[in-house]
Design a protein around this nucleic acid. Structure first.
Lengths: 126, 126
DNA sequence: TCATTGGTTAAGGAAGCACTTGACTATGGG
DNA sequence: CCCATAGTCAAGTGCTTCCTTAACCAATGA
């Protein structure tokens, strides 16, 4: 069970969906699928071709990717074609970027502080 | 078990470490810890304070974060202080950014193609 | 010295995940 | 019609994850 995200003003909510996106991306097979789908839509068996695993296994990965919104698929005739849904990828990237910029802002503040008043080290800052 | 990443020239390798980073970030508790640590180094029990779980559980999360290089910690006296290691965060962000830019480049190419020669829809492009 | 604070270790359990096999359905070409 | 192709469903297995409790150790402050 995750944690109750503290709802902070003016911050994106990311309501629980980050769990599933990062979880989906935590598997090399699924990342390989994403990398393939980025180059264009493709059928399930085409997705499966380079992977050394059974078709049901591939299907299950596709389902994970669909469940978190990273991929959308549609069946026409007997072939299911998968395409990527870049928005969710973006959501994950945004969270990461937000952490990085927070970090950088903090470093800046720290630098300013030390320049203004050297000799008084920040609490546990380094 | 993941997949053998095809080593592509001039592409970052990310050798297997992405598995562990994304896995680490797939948990709300651990993301909350990262968000806290971004604001500055902190002890384990400080990390634990807002979380409704036992200290050993918190320790285990810290260990996961350390194992993938997201966090580094050092024990002084009886208190272990954790600090964030932003490089690995960056690695994950880079992978995401790479996918996004690939996607955008593809869209551009597609746009150009359709402008040059409308009436010949790309294979499965929409 | 002795209780408290801060952390660590070990063991175990419930749930989830990645994968398999086997059986089955439906589409489409010859 | 027949067979191959493309996918789907169900069940099961072994491994991992998240969390718990209980016992324990080591610094610290009164």
């Amino acid at each position: 069970m995750g944690v109750d995200q503290p709802i902070v003003k003016d911050m994106p909510n990311y309501g629980g969906s980050l769990d599933r996106v990062f979880q989906a991306l935590a598997d090399g097979t699924r990342r390989a699928m994403v990398e393939r789908l980025i180059r264009g839509p493709v059928s399930v068996s085409e997705l499966a071709r380079p992977l050394e695993m059974s078709l049901p296994a591939v299907m299950q990965h596709v389902q994970v990717l669909e469940a978190c919104g990273l991929v959308r698929s549609e069946k026409i005739g007997r072939v299911r074609t998968c395409r990527i849904e870049p928005d969710v990828l973006r959501t994950a990237e945004d969270w990461l970027a937000e952490q990085r910029t927070s970090w950088e802002r903090r470093l800046d503040r720290l630098g300013d502080y030390l320049l203004d008043d050297p000799g008084t080290p920040e609490q546990g800052s380094l």
